[in-house]
Design a protein around this nucleic acid. Structure first.
Length: 486
RNA sequence: GGCGGCGUAGCCAAGCGGUAAGGCAGAGGUCUGCAAAACCUUUAUGCGCCAGUUCGAAUCUGGCCGCCGCCUCCA
């Protein structure tokens, strides 16, 4: 089962197109990873989440996914960071690669098929540069090697820029000896005190763009089905990658280009140069919830906006996302007590799946997919909440299957509902309330005794005290009260 | 200056030619010792403003206002 109806917005054509891989049932997908000189922020989180969801969607629709995500471990900023810290480059990159991987685990991102590092691919890059030199698309100059932009007729097509306009903003750094201001560097000649590698063009290091061309060629061949990354990579990074790859291979570099929108704070782009970033690790460490809960909370928050729109990171929107997810978990908890039914089960399962998959297939419309979850919840909740009397309005098994589908594709609703509602960070430790589990249950017992004796003022006093600590008690008929943390 | 995006209820957010999904918050109700949760009902004659195209526009066209992004490293 490899047929799918997935449509995606292609930045190259600026239209939504059917996604048709060159080999049926197999997806060759390359996404730009990170440059490892600092901890990742929420902008990286969103981007990885978007392409993770796409990755999962391809898997769900029966594709074999050959997903490659690079790590840039040699560049100016890394060198500067190492110099400032007085530490070796490898120590800096090692630290931030570890940090990146830790963040990917926190976010629940599926591992790619390969995660090549630039420094491991020097020979591939050198081969590619030699190829570009031999066809006249590149030239050596002053110890560097440059790509001859005007030699590539399609330059500017991806970012929809015309050469003349680009020229106005182009610049030549001191020491560069370009034929044309638009040309970009493929190989940087070694400078005093900088790390360098041997090459036929002399000692030096690769330019930024060439690694992606070399690595994608190595793992996925000359033509990708899909190339992704943040919108800020569109120009110049992807434009240049495309130019150099196609100049070298003579064939289409990527059939489809997908770019995600930014995370903003107060409606301005979150970026390191503006100093308004929020780190992923920082968000998790400050979260009052366990990691598995925080993960889904963040995922739900980001996926409740379409991937191409900007997302403003606000406390209010974040709180709203948590409450919406809580509602879904409430349904999941009730659902776990219900049996599968009866007639119509297959119809329900089919209908839910169809609606959900259609939303994701329509240019990854995750907000609509999430609304399908809420629609299913609304349909079955009255019946679940009223003791499951009479005919079920939908098959509980079908709703559960829908939630599992959401888990597989969007990475939400995977936590055990009882843990979702009551979980502390670690059993026995003090939670965000400042109370241990034992202290809480002791207070709950005291209150139950007071209630039994109809000493309601005492019972209410205990409940108020717990509430001040962020613990809400919900009395249930014929059972112990439920403990919920806010 | 060039290229592009956005502006939908108190907030978040879909829809992109056929008469406004969903979530959060709010209001009323059921339940409860009282609450909370849950459940039920309810909340945009209107989608920045003004023209126009159309039988019909939030959706298309033109103009205007406001906000944001890329063009330099950036997810």
């Amino acid at each position: 089962m490899t047929s799918s109806n997935i449509r995606l917005y292609n930045s190259l054509t600026r239209t939504i197109e059917p996604f048709v891989p060159q080999t049926p049932g197999e997806v060759r997908m390359y996404v730009c990873g990170v440059t490892v000189y600092d901890d990742c922020h929420l902008g990286h989180a969103r981007s990885q989440m978007v392409f993770d969801t796409l990755h999962r969607l391809f898997l769900e629709t029966g594709h074999r996914v050959r997903y490659v995500r690079n790590i840039t471990d040699i560049d100016d900023k890394i060198i500067r960071k190492a110099r400032e810290a007085g530490r070796p480059i490898s120590e800096i990159t090692g630290r931030y690669i570890d940090s990146f991987h830790r963040d990917m685990v926190r976010l629940g991102i599926l591992s790619p098929m390969a995660e090549p590092r630039a420094t491991e691919f020097l020979s591939g890059m050198i081969t590619l540069i030699e190829r570009l030199l031999s066809v006249g698309a590149a030239y050596p100059s002053g110890g560097d090697v440059y790509f001859r932009v005007r030699r590539f007729p399609g330059y500017g097509e991806l970012s929809h820029q015309v050469l003349a306009d680009l020229l106005a903003g182009a610049r030549i750094e001191p020491g560069e000896e370009k034929e044309d201001p638009l040309d970009f560097v493929l190989w940087k000649g070694a400078k005093e005190g900088e790390p360098s590698y041997p090459s036929p063009f002399g000692e030096g290091r690769p330019g930024w763009h060439i690694e992606c061309s070399a690595m994608s060629l190595h793992y996925l061949g000359p033509t990708l089905d899909l190339h992704g990354g943040g919108l800020d990579l569109l120009f110049p990074h992807h434009e240049n990658e495309r130019a150099q790859s196609e100049a070298a291979t003579g064939v289409t570099f990527s059939r489809m280009w997908v770019h995600n929108g930014f995370v903003t704070t107060r409606e301005t782009k979150m970026s390191k140069s503006l100093g308004n970033t929020r780190q992923i690790r920082n968000f998790f460490e400050e979260s009052p919830y366990p990691e598995e809960v925080t993960r889904e909370w963040l995922r739900y928050f980001f996926l409740s906006t379409h991937y191409r729109s900007p997302v403003d990171f606000t406390d209010q929107a974040l709180a709203s996302a948590k409450l919406a997810l809580d509602g879904l978990y409430q349904c999941l908890a009730l659902l776990s007590e219900a049996e599968e039914t009866r007639q119509g089960a297959e119809d329900d399962a089919w209908e839910f799946r169809r609606a959900f998959m259609e939303a994701l297939s329509a240019d990854l419309d995750t907000p609509v997919a999430l609304s399908v979850l809420h629609a299913a919840k609304s349909r079955i909740n009255p019946w679940l909440a009223s003791g499951r009397l009479g005919r079920a309005p939908a098959d509980p098994g079908a709703v559960r299957a829908l939630f599992e589908l959401a888990g597989r594709t969007m990475g939400v609703l995977r936590v055990d509902p009882s843990r979702w509602v009551t979980g502390l960070r670690e059993a026995g430790s003090k939670g965000p309330s400042g109370l241990t589990e034992e202290e809480i249950s002791h207070l709950v017992i005291l209150r139950e005794e007071a209630r039994k004796n109809r000493d309601f003022s005492k019972a209410d006093a205990i409940r108020d005290r717990l509430k001040e600590s962020g613990i809400v008690l919900e009395d249930q008929p014929g059972g112990p009260p439920r403990i919920r943390r806010i």
